[in-house]
Amino acid sequence: MPESKEQNPDETESVQENEPRRRAPTPIKVFNAQTGDHLEVPFQKRVSSLLLELGIDSETVLVIQKDSLLLPGDSIDPRFEVEIRPVISGGSGR
């Protein structure tokens, strides 16, 4: 009996997973509004992972993209810069 040319679906999936990606993921441009620094970080799909990558507590910053506030669960559009705006102030008061 000839050997079937059909592949096991699991194997197919496995091969696809191991294929090298064709395009490098777009890095994300980040602007720190307090320091004025611009930096690039590896692509992150969501705000929460971007903040984790930057070591920032989500409760200490506003995250802004395209004139909108983003929440930790929101997706990031890598075509646009993300503004990180720290909210913590200190000193003797105002």
Binding site: A33, T35, I88, G90, G91, S92
Partner: peptide, 16 residues
Amino acid sequence: IRECPMSADAKQIFYK
């Protein structure tokens, strides 16, 4: 937005 340059070492920021 930027922080007062004289409060960089302020204890209050540490407590926050």
